[in-house]
Simulated scan of single mutants.
Amino acid sequence: MKPKISLVTLGVADLERSLAFYREGLGLQPHEYDPDAGVVFFPMEGSWLALFPREELAKDAGIGAAGSGFSGITLAHNEPDKAGVDAVFAQAVAAGATVIKPAQDVFWGGYSGYFADPDGHVWEVAWNPLTDLT
């Protein structure tokens, strides 16, 4: 297997609401979006992000759709500096993100904060002075 994650699919409760959040909150642009397709794809550098109704995603995987609390996964976006972290964080919050942990200096020497999208998917926005992940 080639070590690469090509697609991350998020199960969402309301596809249109989530589409609006990812457009406005993170500035992502959908690829050939068709409102009747029931799925949204966003091209990203080196991978894709998809939004798919949670019930349908669970059905496709053959598992129950019920879930609560922390799923054990976070998604991360890195910026080249603290100001970039603050700008992305503010944009996401303005579009409806819920602040989990405000952006701040962190124990490992960087700067980061966490927010949840409208479906509770947890995102970290960070600046890492040790490794350029931008």
Rank of each mutant, 00 (worst) to 15 (best):
V88E: 02
Y111F: 07
G46A: 12
E79Q: 14
P53E: 07
P53H: 05
S68Y: 14
G62C: 11
A87K: 13
D81L: 09
P102K: 12
Q104Y: 05
P80F: 13
A94L: 05
F42W: 01
Q91T: 12
F42D: 00
V106Y: 02
F42E: 00
I73S: 05
F42P: 00
D105H: 12
G109V: 15
G109Q: 12
D86L: 04
F70G: 05
F42N: 00
L49R: 02
A83K: 14
D36P: 04
W48L: 05
S47N: 10
E56K: 15
A50F: 00
V93P: 00
G64Y: 09
G96A: 03
G109T: 15
V40M: 00
A92W: 00
K82R: 15
V106N: 09
A66T: 14
P53S: 07
V99T: 15
R54H: 13
L49E: 02
D60H: 11
G38K: 07
I73R: 03
A103G: 01
V99D: 07
F89E: 01
L49S: 03
A50T: 00
F70M: 12
T98R: 15
G62K: 09
G38L: 06
L51S: 01
S68H: 14
G67C: 09
G113L: 03
V106R: 03
E79P: 03
F70Q: 10
G72E: 12
A65G: 10
G113E: 02
H77K: 07
D36H: 08
F42G: 00
S47I: 04
V39Y: 01
S68G: 15
P102Q: 14
Y111E: 02
V106E: 13
F41Q: 04
A90K: 08
G110D: 08
D105P: 10
R54D: 10
I63A: 09
A61N: 14
E79A: 12
G46H: 04
A65Y: 11
A97Q: 01
V40R: 00
P80L: 13
G69H: 10
K82Q: 15
S47M: 14
F41R: 04
G109P: 06
A87M: 07
G62W: 11
G62D: 13
E56P: 05
T98N: 09
V88N: 01
Q104T: 14
F41H: 08
E55C: 05
A90W: 04
L49I: 09
G38E: 09
V106G: 03
K59W: 07
G110Q: 08
G72I: 14
V93G: 02
A66V: 13
G46T: 06
G84S: 09
F89V: 04
E79H: 08
S68W: 12
P80I: 13
L49N: 01
D105C: 06
F52I: 07
V99H: 06
N78Y: 12
A94D: 11
W48H: 06
A95Q: 02
I63R: 10
G96C: 03
V93L: 05
L75I: 09
G84Q: 11
G84V: 12
A94S: 13
I63N: 07
D36A: 11
H77C: 06
G72T: 13
T98Y: 06
L75R: 02
G69K: 10
W108L: 08
A97R: 00
P102V: 11
L75A: 04
A95N: 02
M44P: 02
I100F: 06
G64W: 11
G67S: 14
G69S: 09
A37C: 03
D60G: 08
P102H: 10
